[in-house]
Design a protein around this nucleic acid. Structure first.
Lengths: 247, 247
DNA sequence: CACGATTATATGTCTAGACATATAAGTCAA
DNA sequence: TTGACTTATATGTCTAGACATATAATCGTG
């Protein structure tokens, strides 16, 4: 409390700007529990008085907190601390090469299979398209220090990404190529677990029956499917880490 | 292009406000690829002219896009479209009861074991604390329509959450109790895969050797550990879905 | 040419107002 | 009591300015 305004002296070493200090003050009170969920935050005109600033400055602080879902603003009623609505986390699924090099290992990549074909009914179901256009089907493997890290099965819709026809996926992994050539607007990840069958066990160099983490990713570009990819990771060694998101 | 200003007629059916339209216009151009990564966005004064509005209005639109990491703003240089930095997704890990009822199943809950004890060295390692305070160790199971959905192993640090000592975890699941009683500031989720051993197979009513998805969640409240929980899901039926996050 | 000083400029923050709009709360009649 | 109407009020958006600040670009000098 009461670290209010010293900003009237403009020459001071005012590192953080005023609206950021207001935002941090409120955020701190919420996160420490001093202002619990449902609590009504002081009105804008009260904060104006407390911090001796204009309404726009207070409003900027509150707008950012609202955008971050920490507070909820209702006309005429006021501004309220939101209750922890759902536990969500930002799961960063990095480019696999980046993931491996971040672990300090040397990255290598093997193309197992790459073929261009007219979409089979299975392909169409996987990509969520109805017409039988051309697709590229790729199987490849990513390794760190020579140890298999993940195997990838990918389908690329050539109707959405015609340039992919000319890409050299023996040289560049398809995920990396797509990341640099195709902007995407939406993605969905599904995470599940399986046990390794013969083929998977051989590709990952693990025992048959060992657990594997599976990530299915579908990527769209404004309602058009770009690619569908399934990644298999050895489940006992690999971990997906998702951090943060207070609420 | 050129859907600029009709906002000068204030009585019109101007559903979206001007700054939101500016934001959407720019966002659209970025996501469609019309303005690729690295492209310099028109200066604020150019946008002012295009939309016939004041600089603050343009600035509000650009600030929000910058907050969402879609653009990068550099003094004197201008504003630029960010390149797709990393593939991230918001993984929503709902309260398990909510998750089950959302699937249209009836939720039930069984407390398997609940004991209060002085932290063992294993407990201390798991909670990341050095002193041997009191903890509560809980094992329980969540079911949907009577079918096991997940088993939970949890440790609560009573030094951080003294109130937990008086909670009735036979009646209310600990996750739900904590969600409603303890604000948290940080969490870390780790996802991996295992195969079911005897105990797990029995608890989840699946075969020994079947794949299971494991979620470890650690929750802190400003640098103090609140709880550590491990959830096991049957891996072939359960799916974690993470959506969105364009970039 | 290299390097330090100067200048121009785009963004960052802020003000003191204004009108718009949704809505909680109060008022009044059936 | 209930429903319809009115009013007060907090937020939502916007303006036309202002000064601050970081820095790209230019200029000048050794």
């Amino acid at each position: 409390m009461s670290l209010a305004s010293d900003r009237t002296k403009p020459g001071a070493a005012n590192k953080p700007t005023l609206y950021k200090r207001i935002r941090l003050d409120i955020e701190t009170r919420i996160l420490t529990g001093e202002w619990p969920p449902g609590h009504r935050i002081p009105f804008e005109h009260q904060l104006m008085a407390r911090y001796r600033c204009s309404r726009m400055t207070v409003n900027k602080a509150l707008s950012e907190l609202a955008q971050a879902d920490l507070i909820e603003r209702r006309r005429r009623a006021g501004t309220f601390v939101r209750r922890p609505q759902h536990i969500s986390a930002v799961l960063t699924i990095a480019d696999i090469r980046a993931e491996i090099t971040a672990l300090g290992r040397s990255y290598s990549y093997q193309l197992i299979d790459c073929r261009r074909r007219t979409a089979t009914s299975a392909d169409r179901a996987r990509l969520g398209v109805t017409t039988a256009g051309k697709v590229i089907a790729i199987a490849c493997r990513h390794s760190g220090d020579g140890v298999p890290f993940a195997v990838e099965d990918r389908l690329i819709d050539l109707a959405t990404v015609p340039d992919a026809a000319t890409a050299d996926f023996a040289r560049e992994p398809p995920g990396s190529w797509l990341l640099h050539h195709v902007p995407w607007t939406e993605a969905e990840h599904t995470i599940s677990a399986v046990v390794a069958d013969d083929r998977l066990a051989k590709a990952l160099d693990i025992a048959v029956g060992a657990p594997c983490l599976v990530i299915d990713r579908y990527t769209w570009r404004s309602a058009r499917t770009v690619t569908a990819v399934r990644l298999h990771y050895p489940g006992e060694t690999h971990r997906l880490v998702a951090r943060f998101k207070g609420g």
